[in-house]
Nucleic acid binder design. Structure first.
Lengths: 303, 303
DNA sequence: ATGTCAAATATGTCTAGGACAAAATAAATG
DNA sequence: CATTTATTTTGTCCTAGACATATTTGACAT
């Protein structure tokens, strides 16, 4: 009976880990990992254990490590590597740590309540920069150390999204400028960064139109025309390969009218270098506020 | 200058259309479409026009057509096929058609207002079954005919999500039974069905915990334990291949404790046949209400 | 020691052509 | 007309190889 362990074929592993089939096969040849068993037709079957390792490896690669250093290491080895490398250990406020405790205790309702309290106390601006953003980093970090599971991160994201969406609804103003369209490119399915951008922009009295995630490039162009948007904002998480970000953004820029600004942000764009002209890279969220002001100044100067 | 038309490599096309690389290559061999140009290294480069056709084809396949019938047809041919085949043309109320007009006019704010009015007038139950659900079908249909673009559908989804999330927040009760966990499997990124399920279940006084989309199977199992969930609800859109649905659901069922109910729903499960025991397939949303009542009856009977 | 440039290596993604299982359709049976 | 069986269709997997791009290493000059 114990031979009925969980085995996944390569397609499932691709979806579960975000690592492509080609990559999985070439890793097997180059690094000897993952080393799946085979079924009667030589098809790969990955044990759940290796899939877990792959998920961890994916995350490590996302933060800049190289495959040769991490692919094939055992779970303990990976953890050892993790605890020594983080380097700069920011001091997290006790309040943030309390949020994390709520996540670990699976207290979704309590977490949401606490977040709403923090929002009301700090105001949206500080809430985003001093609570949500560091909390995201903290949670991502905890995930990396194995202190927080994927499903706990999912629950956390849901609460944040819920709180932010509610708040944004109350501060939206259709007469604001510039008119900003927000979305992500196909392949990028994280909406949290987008939502934080919308909140920040709305706070600066921009008029935001949220398109959700994964809008095809040609459709983005049409949407910009239809909404007469002044600015297109694209968000990229750290999970996006830098090469994909680069080619995607350049294709968008090429297809977009010249008078439409293109603002890109998120952890996935920080690795970008030599960004082409006509593309503005946002660092912290506050850059968006500055960009809005700069945009208005440029308009009043030209008009 | 005119030679700078948009060309996409196979990886981008996979992401933009949702059609896998292997499938794209084998279609080329079998049907002679898509027939991309090649770069200096024989790599495929797909013109934007073919990518548009592929998106249309993908949608047609999702509603049950066969590749041999649609792959390779020109845009006019596809449209001709569309307008004749729908067959059962349900009569849509003028109110629904007005919603569609708002979508086409890109009046996001007005649309949301109208939706909220409908919600207040009809109540959540009727709103879901008599407005949202038929509207989804109508929008999907209009998309198919080329009357609505992808970005317009995105905008529409955002408004629905916004309205539903707000409403759900107000009717959530942490003491309800059964305790239901909601999510989708990796590969399924549509959250709308999930949200509609949450609304319906909350209305039946179940206690819902939303995990968002794409939770890995092993994590779902852990989440069920952590939240002591009585029921796991998985949602599948029509875009999910039936085979993926089947294998995914069966793997979940195998990994789940026997006393946890597994409810699956959405357009993606209607194609399923010979469903294994321990898996309950939901048709219309109202099935969820019935399932909640049945669950409570079974509990009081056993306990 | 630090900066710059070129060579070497690492890495992901693409190619071809073939194979097979599962699903869907057509055909043959009761 | 309903069921079963054969046939076709279709997606996904396989191996093995190639190459562009990104990163690192090494050499050299500042």
């Amino acid at each position: 009976m114990s031979e009925e362990i969980s085995l996944f074929n390569i397609g499932v592993v691709e979806r579960e880990t975000g690592i492509g089939k080609d990559t999985l096969r070439v890793w097997e040849k180059r690094y000897g990992f993952p080393l799946p068993v085979r079924d009667q037709h030589e098809d790969r079957l990955y044990p759940a254990e290796q899939v877990d390792q792959l998920r961890l490896i994916k995350r490590l690669l996302d933060i800049g490590m190289r495959p040769a250093k991490v692919v094939g290491l055992s779970y303990p080895e990976l953890n050892a590597l993790l605890t020594e490398t983080p380097g700069e250990e920011p001091v997290y406020s006790s309040e943030l740590l309390e949020f994390v405790e709520l996540i670990k205790a699976h207290q979704g309702g309590e977490l949401k309540l606490a977040l709403n309290l923090a929002l009301l106390r700090q105001g949206m601006g500080d809430f985003l920069s001093k609570t949500i953003h560091p909390l995201n980093l903290l949670v991502g970090d905890a995930w990396l150390r194995g202190e927080i599971r994927v499903f706990e991160e999912h629950l956390y994201s849901e609460q944040i999204i819920s709180v932010l969406r509610t708040a944004i609804t109350t501060i939206r103003n259709p007469r604001g400028t510039p008119r900003v369209l927000l979305t992500t490119l196909p392949g990028e399915e994280h909406s949290l960064g987008l939502l934080m951008a919308e909140a920040t922009l709305s706070l600066s009295r921009a008029y935001c139109t949220m398109l959700g995630v994964q809008t095809p490039i040609s459709e983005i162009v049409l949407a910009v025309q239809a909404h007469q948007a002044d600015v297109l904002t694209l968000s990229f998480s750290s999970a996006m390969p830098a090469a994909q970000v680069k080619s995607g953004v350049e294709q968008v820029r090429k297809a977009l009218p010249g008078n439409v600004s293109l603002w890109i942000g998120g952890a996935g764009v920080q690795k970008q270098r030599n960004v082409e002209p006509g593309i503005q890279v946002m660092g912290p969220l506050s850059d968006l506020t500055g960009a809005v002001l700069a945009w208005r100044a440029a308009i009043s100067g030209n008009g």
